[in-house]
Design a protein around this nucleic acid. Structure first.
Lengths: 116, 116
DNA sequence: TCCTTGCATCGACGACTGTCAAGATAGACA
DNA sequence: TGTCTATCTTGACAGTCGTCGATGCAAGGA
């Protein structure tokens, strides 16, 4: 048992309560936009596990304020965090959030570990 | 909507392309509503792996047409499927879809299995 | 001090979303 | 045939979302 997410056993195992569903839906909703999903994957897979905004804006056809907006949405959903270092702002993914969602999605193949 | 398991190595490993991001974001978006997320978990965890609409509507404070609408969104996103049997319509989760999303979210701990 | 660069915020706009009441449709049964 | 039940569809509405241009702010350099 790496984690004890009593809030997030696989959803094939037991139904979600209203409160958990609301919190988790907020995270899924944040990932429900192509630009945000690509932002998340670019940050997660970037060298060192973090990326500055200047590494990201060039990858998209949308304006810089729009990227900034999407980064804020991801941050407010608890999926990423950021820090200013001098002139640049760096973003990184919060792995616990991804793990929480991943454990919710796991199906029978990998449920064995949750046989508490 | 075809399932290509090797299309989704973990996003901590390599960034998503535009096309994949669009397809996957559609699924996450469908899960980005509390009612739909609870519907999905109710169906997935229901006895026999499937549930008829009459098993679901009573669990929510929203009207039956709204439930029907959300079920349609989940179905068009490729997360569930349904079949009519006599008077009732039964819904079940498509495990391949959940696995696809789950593998995208997996972090370093479980990356070993993805031999893309 | 002023200027430049990197990023965030603001205000506005069209497009989309969640919800409901009302009506339509499909199957079971008499 | 007709009626009843279970479910879906339609049309409408307020609210939210994604996007942009303009602007603001912080840090660094001349």
């Amino acid at each position: 048992m790496l984690q004890a997410p009593d809030c997030c056993s696989p959803m094939v195992r037991e139904p979600l309560g209203e409160a958990d569903a609301k919190a988790l839906a907020g995270m899924f909703k944040a990932m429900g936009d192509p630009v945000r999903l690509r932002l998340l994957s670019l940050i997660a897979s970037h060298e060192g596990g973090e990326a500055c905004v200047c590494d990201l804006t060039g990858e998209f056809d949308v304006s810089q304020p729009t990227i900034s907006h999407h980064l804020r949405v991801l941050r407010e959903a608890g999926l990423i965090d950021c820090e200013r270092r001098g002139t640049w702002v760096y973003y990184w993914v919060l792995p616990a959030a991804l793990d929480r969602l991943g454990s919710l999605l796991s199906t029978s193949a990998s449920v064995a570990t949750a046989s508490s």
